[in-house]
Structures are given as structure tokens and as C-alpha cells.
Design a binder for these strands. Structure first.
Length: 270
DNA sequence: CTTACGGCCTGTACGC
DNA sequence: TGCGTACAGGCCGTAA
């Protein structure tokens, strides 16, 4: 699942179940996901109470009474299933890898067919290093055109590659990078440094792009967009369709950048 | 240092 | 129906 908006929606679904709950059991159905689980994973999570449920970028972070943080990442195909306290056992699946049993009797099951997800326990103070994330895009104090311009300065990488770099801005993935670039009317292929401060246009383009990122993410959350299930986008997955921009007669192209699909309008995105 | 690419996994959709 | 191929929202290690 996964870009910031969907992770935030998942966090909101989990919050009422996890917040204040004590984890009474942790069942690991395999050695790990994309990495092996730390050997002390169960010991550090079991018998802890969740005092806060946060999100940073694409990570869901459960703050534990011990001061540790349980970090959970959905990778490409991860999802959580909440099973009620009583009867409905919810059909077990081969890809149910982690099951948290809660004091309420509810269970939270992590399912991930591709196992690109991750779970870890982060000690107090280690979060910045462990996650290595840039600013939260929806935090206006942390992320704006000036911050983006600084990240782009001196970069010869294509703009889209910079947006996908989690150290530049946390939580943007392939779909919303593509969408934001369309909203900002910027080509995904443009060299990133060209939107950094340049004589004359003081970060106008970087501000436009930063604003587009915020708007695309906020809208997705507000609409409860779940790309995995449905949702259509402005340009993502719309190769050969006409550009949705009013007054633009262009056509959406699909190209491949660093082996991922990019969709953009060659006419209005410069 | 930066950038590009393959690999990790499984599932699904499509063409033959 | 069956089979092969391409592709999928992420990230990381390696190589250039």
C-alpha cells in the first residue's frame, strides 16, 4: 500500500484500536520481512502499552511505555487487518506475518504478500538515524519552497528522482510524485538544480512544486484515496490519454525513470 | 560524493 | 485453459 496519504489513513484506522492498548502477545509467522526481525523484537514489544500512534513519512510509529518505538512500514503490499475481540476470527492468510494480540481481546494482523515491508524497534534517541527521513511535507514549518530549493540545488538528477528521495521529503512515492509534477507543470525529466534559486526567479518553481506536493497529498487524504483498490489520477496510469489540464491539448506519455513508470504531459509540463 | 540499476518477493493482467 | 512476460504504490546494496 503505501504512500503518505494511505499510510496516514491506515494510522487513523489503527489509532482507536492501538492507542492505550497493551500488547499481550506478538506472533511472528516467519523470520522477517525484507529484513529479519531483530532477535529481541518480541521481548521489546510484548507487555508494552502504546501511548501514542504517530506517522513519519511512510512509517507508522507506535510509541511504547518503555520509551522504545515500534516502527512499521507497509512496503508495496503490506496491510493491517483488525480482528474483533469476540468471534469473527477473520480468515487466516499465508501472508499474515505478524499478529499483535491486545489486552482488549482485539488482534491486529499484518499481512504482506511481497514482504517488502519492515518492522523494527527503535531505541529512544535513535529515530533520526534509523529512519533517515527528510521533512514532513504537510508540516508547513518544516517543508516549503525554500527547503525544496535547497535540496535541489546542485543536483543533476531528474526532478522526479529527487521527489522520491525520502531524505528530501518524507512520504512521497511514485504516484504522488507524478501527480505533483503535473500540478506544478514541471517535467519529471527536468534537472533538479534548475528549480533551485537562480538569478531572477527566486525559487518560484520550487515553491510551486512544494505547494503542489502539499495539495496533492492533502487532497488524497481528504478523499480517502486508496490507490491499491481504485482511484484514478490526473496523469498516473493514463498513458496516451489527453491531458486533463484545461486548455492543454497535450497527451500523457509514459516513460521509465530509474526503472519506475512516470506519466506526464509533454506539452504543459516543462 | 552522486546517480543508475538490479534485486528482493508475490500477484495480477495481458498476449499468444 | 495454460503459459510466458511485464508490471506493480518501496527500498537497499552495489557499481559506475
Amino acid at each position: 500500500m503505501p504512500e503518505l496519504p494511505e499510510v496516514e489513513l491506515v494510522r487513523r484506522e489503527l489509532e482507536p484500536v492501538l492507542l492505550g492498548a497493551r500488547i499481550v502477545s506478538v506472533t511472528l509467522n516467519r523470520d522477517g520481512l525484507r529484513r529479519p526481525f531483530p532477535s529481541d523484537f518480541v521481548d521489546r514489544v510484548r507487555r508494552q502499552t502504546i501511548v501514542e500512534l504517530d506517522r513519519r513519512g511512510k512509517y507508522i510509529l507506535a510509541r511504547l511505555t518503555s520509551g522504545d518505538t515500534l516502527s512499521m512500514h507497509l512496503g508495496m503490499s503490506g496491510s493491517f487487518r483488525i480482528e474483533g475481540r469476540g468471534s469473527e476470527a477473520g480468515a487466516a492468510d499465508v501472508h499474515d506475518h505478524v499478529v499483535f494480540g491486545l489486552s482488549s481481546g482485539a488482534r491486529v494482523v499484518y499481512n504482506d504478500p511481497r514482504r517488502f515491508g519492515a518492522m523494527d524497534v527503535i531505541a529512544p534517541g535513535d529515530e533520526a538515524t534509523a529512519l533517515a527521513l527528510g521533512p514532513e511535507p504537510l508540516d508547513d514549518a518544516a517543508f516549503d519552497g525554500a527547503v525544496l530549493a535547497r535540496a535541489c540545488a546542485g543536483s543533476r538528477a531528474p526532478l522526479k528522482a529527487v521527489l522520491l528521495d525520502q531524505r528530501v521529503v518524507a512520504g512521497v512515492g511514485n504516484i504522488y510524485a507524478v501527480e505533483a509534477l503535473h500540478v506544478a507543470r514541471l517535467s519529471p525529466r527536468r534537472k533538479a538544480s534548475t528549480i533551485a534559486t537562480r538569478g531572477g526567479q527566486p525559487r518560484e518553481l520550487a515553491t510551486r512544486l512544494a505547494d503542489a506536493i502539499k495539495s496533492v497529498l492533502r487532497t488524497a487524504i481528504a478523499r480517502h484515496e486508496r490507490p491499491y483498490r481504485s482511484s484514478r489520477f490526473l496523469v498516473y496510469d493514463r498513458a496516451d490519454e489527453s491531458c486533463p489540464r484545461r486548455g492543454c491539448a497535450g497527451t500523457i506519455r509514459r516513460i521509465v525513470q530509474s526503472s519506475r513508470s512516470t506519466f506526464y504531459c509533454t506539452t504543459c509540463q516543462r
